[in-house]
Write a protein that binds this DNA or RNA. Sequence first.
DNA 1: GTAATTGCAAACTCTTTGCAGCATG
DNA 2: CATGCTGCAAAGAGTTTGCAATTAC
Lengths: 138, 138
Amino acid sequence: MTPSTMREMADILRNAGIPVTLQRVEIARVMLSQHTHLSADQVLAKVQQSVPETSRATVYNTLRLFREKKLVRELIVDPERIVFDSNTDPHYHLYNAEQGTLIDVSADELQVVGLPDLPPGLQLDEVDVIIRVRDRKP
Amino acid sequence: MTPSTMREMADILRNAGIPVTLQRVEIARVMLSQHTHLSADQVLAKVQQSVPETSRATVYNTLRLFREKKLVRELIVDPERIVFDSNTDPHYHLYNAEQGTLIDVSADELQVVGLPDLPPGLQLDEVDVIIRVRDRKP
DNA sequence: GTAATTGCAAACTCTTTGCAGCATG
DNA sequence: CATGCTGCAAAGAGTTTGCAATTAC
């Protein structure tokens, strides 16, 4: 990690009100230095490449913390695992279950029209759109 | 189960090419006699009210079979459990995670516009829309 | 010194699987 | 008789939790 990345990640954490630790900076580097879609185990594997003294529990704890602070979103697209998305702008997803690939679709291209009125006492949280595709079988 | 329901469920199974058994008729009654959203465990609990000699494995096997035969859809809305939906018409969902309630939104009311062109070699499987709501906190 | 953070291992939940017995055609 | 369906129990995967040791303020 370059010094500037280190500093950038630490700043993101502080701005979010998260006390800075080595493991959190490292998890931030993996998740937040570019847009990605990663499962908790994928994050663990990447973090352990640079900081082997990182436990699975810390990764789960930290990802939950990041989610609460809105640094990442949880995507529920596959029953096997939760995917964490570091793109927090409004957007949708194209998912290929066979390959496990997940691609962002900007909210500029794709829109949802005709959202129903919500029953009173409810407020909109978010709208997920998942375009599920598969390999064309000839 | 009235005799007519019994017969109706057996017909649905036969039409789908599924050999008729007591457990399958019972699971069909729970899932298919009206539109519902149920987890495997909820189906198990309901089926066991009338046919206690029904195992968890059979419920999972049968729900998978129903899915392959397009009698039900699998909904991935909550990381805790898979929900099976007996409404196989095109439609979307409004989900309240706190209450666990899931409501159908017809494809007549709500539409997705601007679906991206798919990369060659891919075909569209389905488009899921989940409107996530929560209780309004005053 | 008090509180927060971490690692380890165990626990937990949902789902799948292996296998023996039973039923079915 | 051969196939396939069922129940039971165990296995498996992902996630959470309890707790003691360490670190930080």
